[in-house]
Design a protein around this nucleic acid. Structure first.
Lengths: 215, 215, 215, 215
DNA sequence: TATGAATGAGACTTCATTCAT
DNA sequence: CATGAATGAAGTCTCATTCAT
């Protein structure tokens, strides 16, 4: 193994900012920007206040850096989605399920939404920038598949082919998880099934099954 | 005019707490609980800090009272919905539209959601209590109509008959309005139509598939 | 007597800023701007830190206000000098002696010079403004008398009729008092006599040469 | 070129303290003792804070060493003056002009006066010691020439034969340069001429009264 | 010798809260 | 009821100093 020894100075140095940002995330999540204390962030990683200020000049800078830090991996989701194959329904289904996985598994992704809502007015720029990398691409990609699916005759051309509406259960789930946190365990499978059932039963054109069409 | 005279001392006294709570709402909305300053709340109604403390013993009490104050009118919505007549679809449609009206018109109702998300962990009790009076009744009432509609053969018995999913576009809209505030004007009519189209096209039993029966 | 009772609230309120400025003067004199502690200023008048900030928003503002506070009475000196009567020599002599009195008796006037030298670069504006009300008027007034005295044939027209030079012993004395403070007591009478002897023996036109008329 | 090669390690080592002291001078001049930052001193010579502490144990020690460093060359002035020849007037004239040259040309000599006034109370010892090597010898030497000149019948025996008074224009000039720094260029020639004119016209015994003997 | 990460005491400043008037 | 001067605890940020490398 390569890590059987202590970290070298250089490794330690490279790690410190990450440690701080991770600790800052936890603290800001727990208390919000204003109520979070820099010293408590420091305590979480066993350093003193001063150390935080070696790396970040102000609490605000730390917050902004933290937002950037946690929002980084979010673009990756879309890359995977971009390569999805199959019918338009298949692709949309895969995209939505990817989003569910992310939302369900990645607490940071969810908490980002809390920051957007709670601190948006104070950190408009940072928040906007990174909001634009999470929610908006999801909606845009969804709308693209819907539009193409209509052209391909796979989806019906209807008001319901609206990405905001189609993805909204996912956002609602995020909110729900934020509000009740780990308290109330949502039955994710049932929730997803209900969502997809609603969407595709409404949109899919030529579906004998699905039970709506007695015609 | 009935109010051409100055308020009597008694009237003034009865008014003061309301004034304070209204000012507190604006201030807490603008800055969140921690960053809001009691003095700024006082300034908004032209009194001094001390006056606030005549009516509310602490900033936390003031916040809690403010939450209760703005959440009061929300129950009324459900009362109206309870008296809705017509088919189950009709009743569900009316319920959802009532919710839309409230969400679109009542900024306080929307901001309540911000407090739920931003300050939920600090004011668990008061937030939970009043969350339970807004979102949950909406969902429960919705689920009730769905279940009854299925029994009545009006809706198909399907996973999609899930109130969380059915109302989620409304919550998403609230969030969207919170985040972008007055910036981006959503086309409410189109949004509602898309929502209802999706829901009823998916759920309604006896419907010529693929059409939103306006025709 | 009118002050046999405690001060009223109103009187106390009016007094507080003065108290603070006086205490600030002492503290800034003792330690300079940077090393002075706001809490020590507060301690000098038996209040707490917070009280200082009720009246002055920052330490810098307090310093600037203090400078303005102590420099106020300095213009008065010149008013008296303006009404001096007698020959030009008499008037110049009176002006210089007025300056000596001020320098010798008013510690604040001297300490102002210390602030000018020590904090000038940090408080350029305030310092310049009030420097311009002390030293410069003295020099200008001196030059005016010299010039008029030459025209009147009372002083010889010579390079020595230079106000900067003529007043410099006064500035040197200020510096000396600043540096040695109360340690080394200068013999003010001898110093003044030497100064005036030098000046008038050099400038006066119609004087039996080389003698300060003990005759 | 003699210095076309890099410095050897030994030379580098001997140079470092000098570099530090020079940088410290600039920083302390710019900000005063308290507001000066050790790190800024280090930055001025491209080393890190730690390096400063290799050579000077504390910031105070560094300041004291810096004072000693810049005051060293000042004794030399007096050595030259001691060897001046000619009449007593000639010798005094030369002494004063030497002082002027030093004051006009050597910024460090002037800034020392600022430290004396600004930091005197904090560094009483070091400041006193080095003040005693600059101003006091000048005054003592001046007084010596005056006294000898009187004995020799060259100067009149008068109160004006007072070294403090006689040299004060030089100190005033130093102050003026400190306060206005490079802003207002004083006409040094005119200033000196006025000074010497005043002094010798007042003191010289055998001079056709009231005239500046250029004629 | 030089580094620079880390420290921690201490400064400025804020603001919820109190209380005499 | 209302005021607003005063408090003091607490938070952000600074920086002289240390020490392992």
């Amino acid at each position: 193994m390569t890590n059987a020894r202590k970290l070298t100075r250089v490794e330690q140095k490279a790690l410190r900012p990450i440690q701080i940002l991770d600790a800052a995330f936890d603290e800001f999540v727990a208390n919000g920007f204003s109520a979070a204390r820099v010293e408590d962030i420091a305590d979480r990683i066993g350093v003193t206040k001063g150390t935080i200020y070696v790396y970040f000049p102000t609490k605000e800078d730390l917050f902004a850096a933290m937002i950037r830090h946690i929002s980084v991996p979010l673009e990756d989701l879309l890359k995977e989605a971009g390569e999805l194959k199959g019918s338009h329904e298949q692709r949309l289904r895969s995209l939505l399920m990817l989003a569910y996985q992310r939302v369900a598994q990645d607490r940071r992704c969810r908490e980002l939404l809390r920051f957007v809502i709670a601190e948006g007015s104070r950190f408009r720029d940072v928040i906007d920038a990174h909001f634009a990398e999470v929610i908006e691409p999801l909606i845009q990609r969804t709308q693209l598949i819907l539009d193409e699916g209509i052209v391909a005759g796979e989806f019906r051309k209807a008001p319901a082919a609206n990405a905001d509406i189609v993805v909204s259960p996912i956002l609602s789930l995020m909110m729900d998880l934020l509000i009740h946190d780990s308290k109330r365990r949502v039955d994710l499978q049932a929730y997803m099934e209900a969502h997809l059932d609603l969407v595709f039963n409404s949109l899919s054109q030529s579906r004998p099954q699905g039970v709506t069409d007695q015609a």
